[in-house]
């Protein structure tokens, strides 16, 4: 924020796409999602993914490697809305207070 007027692109143009990644929204969170692998359909067989689809902050990280499916949260961005917990068809996610 110390740039002078002639050190930034003109007219407010932001020339680096998607650079909001530098802005971490995880600090907004009052509750964090806790996920159990055991009952998760993604972990089990690579299906469902409702938590990923409906996460407004791309904070659910689903990966697949050598036929194995892994589940993680990116808590740098998770705002703790709880949509993932609410949408999980197997109750594999619940929310816990950050102050706990």
């Amino acid at each position: 924020m110390s740039e002078k007027y002639n050190e930034i692109p003109m007219a407010g143009n932001i020339i680096e796409p998607g650079n909001s990644l530098k802005y971490k929204t995880g600090g907004w969170r009052a509750e964090r999602p806790i996920h159990t692998d055991e009952t998760c359909l993604w972990v089990k067989n690579g299906t469902c993914g409702r938590c990923w689809i409906f996460c407004p902050d791309n904070a659910v990280v689903l990966t697949e490697k050598d036929g194995k499916h892994a589940y993680a949260y990116n808590l740098e961005y998770c705002k703790g809305c709880g949509i993932c917990a609410n949408e999980c068809p197997t109750q594999s996610i619940h929310m816990e207070s950050e102050s706990k």
């Binding site: 929204t25 907004w28 969170r29 902050d57 904070a59 809305c81 709880g82």
Partner: peptide
């Protein structure tokens, strides 16, 4: 749309 946007939680 990347993370780091400032839409309200749950929007």
């Amino acid at each position: 749309l990347n993370s780091g946007h400032r839409m309200c939680a749950g929007c």
